[in-house]
Every structure is written in C-alpha cells, then in structure tokens.
C-alpha cells in the first residue's frame, strides 16, 4: 500500500465519511506508514453538539512524527452522525508539546 494512496483516502473521507469508506481506511491503515495521531476539536474542545464533531479533525503523522494527512473524526450515515475514532485503532497518540500549545 503506497503512501500516496493515503492522501486519496483522506480526500475520500472528507467527501463522504460513510461506514463503507471508514472501513477502507481502517483496512489500509496498517501498511500506510501512518503511526501517530492528534485529535483537534473545534470549539476549543467543548463538544456539545454532534455538528461540532464535523468541524473537528485528526492530524495523522508518520513514524518520524511528520504530519502527513488530516482526516475527519466522524462517521455519517444518512442523518446520523457518530464519532469515528474506532477506525483509527492501531495509531498512537503523539502528545507533542508544540501541537498542544497551538490547539
């Protein structure tokens, strides 16, 4: 699984974060070269409505802790919106200091 495809998958998720597409992402993850994540919530982290999930994202990094792609963190099927961090299973949190201060 080439690393270039990863950008395609990210685009696909932003366009349509359906369960089907998330499963494609989860399957591609192990060989994608991606290793870390950082979740950034819109609204300074005060999640009150499902809609706010839509504006949040996860920054994904490679093994060298370099940012690679950004993906959404929600799944949408019809009108139902739920979180999608389950599909990121296998990635590890980055806990990077400077990123922390920024968000």
């Amino acid at each position: 699984m080439a690393k270039a495809n990863v950008k395609e998958i990210a685009d696909m998720l932003w366009k349509k974060p359906s369960r089907e597409n998330w499963l494609i992402f989860a399957k591609a993850l192990p060989k994608s070269g991606l290793k870390y994540y950082k979740i950034v919530y819109s609204n300074g982290g005060k999640l009150r409505k499902a809609q706010e999930l839509v504006k949040s994202y996860a920054q994904l990094y490679d093994a060298g802790e370099r940012p690679v792609i950004r993906i959404p963190i929600f799944e949408k099927d019809g009108s139902r919106i739920v979180g999608a961090t389950y599909y990121m299973k296998g990635l590890l949190t980055i806990n990077k200091v400077d990123e922390w201060i920024k968000s």
Binding site: Y37, I73, G83, T85, Y86, G90, L92
Partner: peptide
C-alpha cells in the same frame, strides 16, 4: 464513539 484509538 469518540474514545481513544488505543482504548479500542
């Protein structure tokens, strides 16, 4: 549905 990936 928004738990940590490590937790899942």
């Amino acid at each position: 549905s928004i738990d940590f990936p490590e937790t899942y």
